[in-house]
Design a protein around this nucleic acid. Sequence first.
DNA 1: GATCCACAGGAAATTAAGGGTC
DNA 2: GACCCTTAATTTCCTGTGGATC
Length: 441
Amino acid sequence: MDNKNEQFNIDNFFNDYLKGPIIFKSRDALDPSFIPDELPHRDEQIKTIAQNMACTLKQSTPLNMFLYGKSGTGKTAVIRYVAKKLSDKCLKIGVSLPHWIYINCNQVNSGYRVMITIYNQLDPDNPLPPTGLPRDVVLERLFSLLDKTIGNSVCFIILDEIDHLKDKKSKDNVLYILSRMNETFGHYRVNILGISNVLTFKDDLDSRVCSSLGEEELVFPAYNAMELYDILKARVDLAFCGGINGAFVTDGALRLCAAIAAKENGDARRALSLLRKSAELVERRGLPKLTKEYIYLAQDHITKDKRTVFINNLPVHQKAILLSIYLNNKYKNGEKTSSGEVYNTYSELLKRVYGLNKLTSRRVATLVKELDQAGVTSSNVVSYGSKRGRTRMIGINLGVEIMADSLGNDSRWSEYLNYVPSHIRRQDINVYYGKKYRTLF
DNA sequence: GATCCACAGGAAATTAAGGGTC
DNA sequence: GACCCTTAATTTCCTGTGGATC
C-alpha cells in the first residue's frame, strides 16, 4: 500500500513518541512570558527602573515612567522582573505589598475599557460590566475602590502597548485622569508605567498628559546577534536536557538562530520561538541533535503558519478584498493592480454571494491598508496625471500556493479562485477580435 | 499657471449590538 | 420597557494630492 494512503495510528504514534529521546527539560523556559533569574544585557534598564521604584520600600510613590523600544527588546520582561524582586523585598521587610495592574492595550484599547479593567483586576469578585455604565459612574466607583483597596501601598498600573489605545480624545482623557490621580485626590498612591513600541507616541499626546505621564523615560535598544546568542545560551541550559555542552543544540545552530532574529529587529521573542519550533521539529523526528537545517526549516514553518493563520482569520469582506487583489495580480502576470480595479472585482464577487452587501470604496480602502500593514500586500500611491488621476497600486506578497491554500479553505470563496475579473475578460475579447485594446498601465 | 482626474484619507455621523438603571 | 450608555463597524462628506494636459 502507498504510504500516503496508510491510516494514521495514534496509539502507535504515542508509543513511538515515548520511546524517542527526552529533549525538553522545561518548554516554558522558551516561552516569552517566562522570567528567568537573570536578564542578560538589561542591567542598565533594570537599574534605572529599580532606582525609581525603590521608594516604594519607604512607602512613597515613584515617578510615572515611560518605556520605549521595539517588540522583543525586553521591556515587559524587565518590568515583570523588577516587580517580582520589589514584591519579594516588601514581603521580607514587612512593608505593604504593592498592587500590580497589567493591561495590554492591544486587547483593552479604549479609555473606558482601561478604567473597567483596572477596577475588575482590583476587585475580580464584583466585576463591572464591559459597557452600559456612564463614564463618570465608572470613574466614581474606581476611585472609591482604590480608596478601599490601596491603603498604605502603591498601585502600579502597567499599560503595555499603550500606543494601541485608540481615539485620541478618549486616550488623552484616561491618561490624564490616571496620571493626575495622586495630585487631584491627594491620598491615592498610583503609579503609571507606559510601555510603547513607538518612540514618537508622546508627540501625539495632550501636553498636560505628556508632562505628567513621562516623568521618567527609558529606551530599550534592540539586541544584536551576540546579545541574542547570550540570551539563547542561558535559556538552552534551562530548557533542554542536553544543554549546549551536552550536545543537543549545536553552537552553530544557536548562532544562526540569534543571527536570524537580530536581522529581524533584534527581537528576543522571535529568537526564542525559532529555537523552540526547531527543537520541536527535531523531537517529532526522534533525532538526537538540533542542527542549522532545522533552524531554517522552523523559520519557513513560522512564516507560513503566521500568514496562513492570518488569512484564515480575516473577516469575510477582507477575504473577498484579498481574493480580488490575488485575482487581478494573477491575470496581470504579477503586475500591481489599482484600487479601482480591486474594488470592481470585489463588487463582482459580492454580487455572486448570497446574503452579502458590498462595502463602500472608502471602507475597502481602509481594509486594503490593513492588509498592507500586516505585510500580506504591498502598495504605494501613484499619480497618472489628468487622464487617470491618483490611485493606490497594490501587489501581493504571498506565493500562489499560500494564497490558494488559505483562500481555498474557505467554502465561500474557494470556487472563485479561478474567477476572471470582467475588465480582464474585456481585454481578452478585444485581443480576440484583433482590436487594439487601450491598456490601463 | 490653471485645470483635471481618480482617487486617498481624515473626521464626523450613523447604525447596530450589548449592557445598565430606574 | 423606556431610556441611557459604550463600542465597533461602516458610511458620508469633505479636502488634499500630484502628475499630465491645456
